[in-house]
């Protein structure tokens, strides 16, 4: 595993263009989240986004749809921008569309979608359908979900980017799968974003993918930061160490998110939640101090030893 020293930490941050920017908050307003640059464009994004895997798949349930809309509202109110989804996530796409419509189509939205079909020719139609569900004129980012039919889908996505129909192109994986192929694609194609699983216990991405993203100037989206809730559930009964206060982590969720965001190659983490208080707590993790290299190792060791 690659050990992050202070020197490599600063070097990687500079190389990735993901330098940390702390915007000034308006008086009385909640502190604004840390902003990170998308290396390929310089566009600044808040470092915490909103995932929708499982949490937004509520079907036609009107009560739960309204709850999701409240989560989206709280996310934007806290300063968030990126919402990520996929055609694989059941009804999540129409539920996002419902929430956005209810909120009057917030301009802050950064829409991150995926194409997920093994029939390569169906990609454009699927993206069009996803766009209808969201109710957006175009997606900011479209990623090839789990590298399914990636060669043809990447061709499609790069052509769409060239035509201005999407702004960024990316690929995704999760839970450490297919990292070899993932790396090959990162080396061979000018991707804007890569999405992968990374957290205080799943650190495989530190070895090759995160340094490569910095080297190739690719933004990194981190999925499953809480291992689909398993990590936070596991830590729930444990005491947060006193020194967590030094980095402004008041909960285990913030502790984990701060660990993720402090990696210099990481652009945005996308925790998913059904709760308004949790979405605020998540975005708040991107405010205040982030751990340095030494603190990161202390955090990882603490969780490992629990």
């Amino acid at each position: 595993m690659m050990i992050i020293t202070r020197r490599t930490f600063v070097k990687a941050a500079a190389a990735s263009g993901a330098a940390l920017v702390l915007p000034a908050a308006a008086p009385g307003a909640p502190p604004a989240p840390v902003m990170r640059a998308v290396p390929s464009s310089g566009e600044m994004l808040p470092a915490v986004g909103l995932g929708t895997w499982i949490t937004f798949n509520v079907g036609d349930d009107p009560v739960l749809r309204d709850e999701c809309a409240e989560v989206i509202a709280a996310f934007f109110a806290a300063g968030g921008r990126m919402i990520d989804s996929s055609p694989m996530y059941g009804s999540s796409q129409p539920v996002i569309g419902y929430g956005l419509e209810k909120l009057g189509r917030p301009e802050a939205l950064f829409s991150a979608e995926k194409v997920w079909t093994s029939s390569a020719g169906d990609g454009p139609a699927q993206i069009k359908q996803s766009r209808r569900f969201w109710g957006v004129p175009r997606f900011d980012l479209v990623q090839v979900h789990n590298l399914v039919a990636w060669e043809t889908h990447l061709e499609t996505l790069f052509a769409m980017k060239a035509d201005g129909r999407i702004r960024y192109v990316g690929i995704t994986t999760s839970e450490g799968r297919r990292h070899d192929l993932f790396e090959q694609i990162m080396r061979a194609h000018p991707l804007d974003f890569v999405q992968l699983t990374y957290n205080v216990v799943d650190r495989e991405a530190e070895e090759r993918l995160l340094p490569l993203a910095a080297e190739r100037g690719m933004a990194v989206i981190v999925n499953r930061p809480f291992q689909q809730g398993a990590l936070t559930r596991q830590l729930q009964g444990e005491t947060l160490p006193d020194w967590a206060a030094e980095i402004g982590a008041g909960t285990w969720a913030q502790f984990i998110l701060k660990f993720i965001l402090s990696h210099p190659s990481v652009t945005v983490a996308i925790p998913a939640t059904t709760r308004v208080d949790h979405v605020r707590e998540n975005v708040m993790a991107a405010t205040g101090p982030l751990p340095d290299a030494a603190m990161r190792e202390r955090m990882a060791a603490y969780v490992r030893d629990l």
Binding site: I54, N57, L64, M88, Y89, G90, R177, R178, Q228
Partner: peptide, 19 residues
């Protein structure tokens, strides 16, 4: 599906018990 042996039953669950 590649690396099928790395998938758990929970990975195929798309919704929460509440839903």
């Amino acid at each position: 599906m590649s690396e099928w042996w790395t998938y758990r039953l929970e990975d195929f669950l798309l919704f929460s018990p509440r839903v």
